[in-house]
C-alpha cells in the first residue's frame, strides 16, 4: 500500500485530503456518516472575532458543474469556537486547521492571538475578505494589503501560517510571492471565483446578495493552472483546491504543485467525497506505481 502521508508547513497529515473551510462546518454533520479520523485534516468554517449572521438567503445557486454561494462568513465568533468546538475536534485524530477572517488588520491579529493558547495545528488565513477600513477592497487583491496583513499576523501567531488566496486577481503568483516574503509558511488556493446567476423569469439574481463565489468541478482547470503558476513562483508549501471531486482531480492538482488538497463543494453532491477521494488516491498510486504520494507534488512535465 502506498504511503499517502504528506507534510505541509511542518505539519504531518496522514493523507493529503482536507475538508475545505465552509463546506464541513465543525465536522458534526459528516461524522454521522463516517469517522473523521479518515481525513487528512479539517479546515473549519471561517471564524471572525465576533459572531456574524451572514447574508440574507437565498445563499446558493446551482451552475453548470458547480455552484455559487453567498453565505457571507456566518460563524459564532472565535471565543465560541475555541471554547465549544475546538476541544472536541482536537480529539478526532486528524489535523485541525483554524480558518480565520477579518475586516481589519487588527481583527485578524486579535483572532490569531486568541488561538495561540490552543492546540490547533495550523492557521489558514482567508484574505478574500473586504478591508472595511480601506474602502472594502479585498485584502487578497493587492500585493501591499496581502503583505501587510500577513506581516501582522505572522508576528501575532506561533502557529504554522497558511494564507488562503483569492483567484479574483490579475496575478495570483505575485500575491503568493508577497505573502511568502512576509513569512507565510504555506499558501492555499483557490478560494471561490466571483459569479452571478439570474432567474430569467423573475429577472432577479438567484442569490439575494446578487453575486457569489463559484466552486465545484467547473473551477478545477482554473485551480490547476493557478496552483501551477504559484508553484513556479514560491518555495513554500501549497494546499491546492477548487473543483476536486475525484482521486484523479486530487492527483492532478498535486502534479501541478500542491502538497495537499482540500475538497469543498463536492461534498454536497457526495457526502462521502473526501473519504472516497482518499481511497481513489490509494488506487491511483497502485495503478501508477507510486510508492510515496508526496513525491508527485509539482511533478507535471510541461511541454
Amino acid at each position: 500500500m502506498a504511503d499517502l502521508s504528506v507534510k505541509v508547513a511542518g505539519v504531518e497529515f496522514k493523507n493529503p485530503v482536507i475538508a475545505a473551510s465552509g463546506c464541513f462546518g465543525y465536522g458534526h454533520e459528516y461524522e454521522e456518516l463516517f469517522d473523521l479520523s479518515k481525513l487528512g485534516g479539517i479546515s473549519v468554517k471561517g471564524t471572525t472575532l465576533t459572531r456574524r449572521d451572514g447574508n440574507i438567503p437565498p445563499r446558493i445557486a446551482e451552475t453548470p458543474s458547480g455552484m455559487l454561494n453567498s453565505v457571507g462568513l456566518q460563524n459564532p465568533g472565535i471565543d465560541y469556537f475555541i471554547e465549544k468546538e475546538l476541544p472536541y475536534l482536537l480529539k478526532k485524530d486528524t489535523v485541525i486547521i483554524a480558518n480565520i477572517a477579518g475586516s481589519s488588520i487588527e481583527e485578524y491579529i486579535e483572532v490569531a492571538e486568541k488561538l495561540n493558547d490552543t492546540s490547533v495545528h495550523m492557521i489558514e488565513m482567508n484574505i478574500s475578505c473586504p478591508n472595511v477600513k480601506k474602502g472594502g477592497a479585498g485584502f487578497g487583491t493587492s500585493c501591499d494589503m496581502a503583505a501587510s496583513v500577513t506581516k501582522a499576523v505572522r508576528k501575532a501567531t506561533n502557529k504554522p501560517l497558511c494564507v488562503k488566496l483569492t483567484p479574483n486577481v490579475t496575478s495570483i503568483a505575485e500575491i503568493a510571492k508577497a505573502v511568502e516574503a512576509e513569512g507565510a509558511d504555506a499558501v492555499s488556493l483557490i478560494n471561490t471565483l466571483l459569479g452571478m446567476r439570474i432567474d430569467t423569469r423573475t429577472r432577479r439574481p438567484i442569490l439575494h446578495n446578487n453575486v457569489g463565489g463559484l466552486s465545484g468541478p467547473a473551477v478545477l482547470p482554473v485551480a490547476v493552472r493557478m496552483v501551477w503558476e504559484v508553484r513556479n513562483a514560491v518555495d513554500i508549501d501549497i494546499i491546492g483546491m477548487g473543483g476536486i471531486s475525484k482521486g484523479n482531480d486530487a492527483a492532478e492538482i498535486m502534479l501541478a504543485g500542491a502538497d495537499a488538497v482540500q475538497v469543498g463543494a463536492a461534498l454536497f453532491n457526495d457526502p462521502f467525497a473526501c473519504v472516497r477521494i482518499v481511497d481513489e488516491l490509494e488506487k491511483w498510486c497502485e495503478v501508477n506505481k507510486v510508492d510515496k504520494l508526496s513525491d508527485i507534488s509539482g511533478g507535471v512535465v510541461t511541454w
Binding site: G54, P57, R59, I60, P271
Partner: peptide, 25 residues
C-alpha cells in the same frame, strides 16, 4: 430554502428565528 449539503454543514439554507435571547440565524 435553497440547500447545499442538506445536513447542516454549509450554512446556505439560513432562516431567521427568535427566542428569549433575540434573533439569530
Amino acid at each position: 430554502e435553497r440547500m447545499g449539503c442538506g445536513i447542516g454543514a454549509c450554512l446556505v439554507c439560513a432562516c431567521k428565528t427568535k427566542d428569549e435571547n433575540g434573533e439569530k440565524m
